[in-house]
Design a protein around this nucleic acid. Structure first.
Lengths: 230, 230
DNA sequence: CGCGAGCTTGACGTTGTTCAACTAGAGTGG
DNA sequence: CCACTCTAGTTGAACAACGTCAAGCTCGCG
């Protein structure tokens, strides 16, 4: 038995929205009273890395990327679809945002008061457990990504990302990718030119097909095998 | 302002032992009653990746590595010195150990009952906050490592590890390294031969000196610069 | 004294990046 | 409606970084 598989690495918890199920009407009302709901257009920066964290974000609708930058270097550490919390690291202890958050599609973001969320965690044990389930799943996801990005070669890394996008983000073998080649490069830790070459290879081998921004996975088993062998 | 620095990436919280300060006598007694304290010799496996998580570990004394393996690939995701919790991911949601834990020195490990720790988190808010501070610091640390390992070249990565070992683990510019070249390679995501060459380069440039397992950092500013430029 | 594991070194091969040139589509202003 | 520009995408060739391989070395230990 090979233990855990490092194959795909995306959100383990599909619907963090369910975290809200446990809240009483009073608790929901409190959150609602203090939240700010803001729309962002595709491409807009929602949070800038290094700024002080004052809110916990809940992505009501849309898709965002979390990325770290210094000078030339740019790494997308994660992608989050709707109904996910963002910036949970900042609940306790971590004062500054370790990453930037940018809208990949038009988004609706709720800024929750950090003190409100802390209060709920203290008050409502089911909510607390749900939140920490999300945080911990995210930790394991990050470990898997660390493994993938450092131990696998380009084709394996790219297979991982395709499986992730298909399995966890879009939940379909076809999807319209709101990511540029440069984004895909930052997500897989390679040069944009390498992304292009790998897509070409995968198309030649009939693993995927593309038309414009649309990607369809044709040979899932083979893709998983490539992910596994690295 | 460049925001966060990705320079070093080690434990943010020095003494997680302080987590226990908030516990009442009854709470301490409960933990104590149900804990198992076990000694491990250098090299022994404490937790094997993929096994079911039934305890939260507290490293009372010694030094351990957390590593992920599949076939040939081997990555050390973190090193933890004494007075640190291990396996906090498994508190909620994550059932299996995502990594192996191995003793780098002789260790004393406390196996805490996972239900006990959950009870304390529920019961004692200060303890809960302390624990989550540790977990969150670890998340940010992992992001920094992800950035370092994927974006920086060999010299930058190795400088990061030296700064980490010096600053956070041993808290001295000289220290006896209980890591083989192979461990250092797994920690920095490179080949053991590359580790050797970089140590040689650093010695030639008078950045460090070594005698046997002992390493001394001679030029900290330059090392930090190498870490920063990647 | 000899054996074996870890360490070290140099030569070589591969992977993946960089660079430069070219193409295609999307806005912009005359 | 047509240049014009700007950015994203694509391609091939040159190059650098890093891993792999093979050989020799060192040192602790039986």
């Amino acid at each position: 038995m090979e233990g855990m598989d490092h194959g795909t690495h995306c959100e383990e918890i599909d619907e963090t929205a369910s975290c809200f199920n446990s809240l009483t009407e009073d608790e929901l009302a409190m959150i609602d009273r203090n939240k700010t709901e803001i729309k962002y257009s595709k491409g807009e920066t929602i949070i800038k890395q290094g700024t002080k964290a004052t809110n916990i974000l809940y992505l009501k609708d849309g898709l965002v990327k979390l990325s770290m930058n210094t000078g030339e270097n740019n790494l997308i550490i994660n992608i989050k679809p709707q109904n996910h919390f963002i910036s949970t690291e900042n609940l306790y202890g971590v004062e500054f945002h370790p990453y930037s958050v940018t809208a990949l599609q038009d988004c609706i973001v709720c800024f929750l008061d950090i003190e409100d969320v802390r209060y709920l965690i203290k008050q409502n044990n089911i909510f607390a457990t749900d939140i920490y389930r999300v945080i911990n799943a995210n930790v394991v996801l990050t470990y898997d990504r660390l493994f993938s990005l450092t131990q696998k070669q380009l084709h394996g890394r790219f297979a991982d990302i395709l499986l992730c996008l298909s399995g966890k983000i879009f939940k379909d073998t076809k999807f319209d990718l709101p990511l540029s080649r440069r984004d895909l490069a930052a997500l897989t830790g390679m040069a944009p030119e390498s992304v292009i070459r790998i897509i070409k290879d995968f198309k030649n081998d009939k693993l995927i097909s593309t038309q414009g921004k649309r990607i369809e996975i044709l040979n899932m088993p083979m893709l998983k095998k490539i992910s596994a062998v690295g």
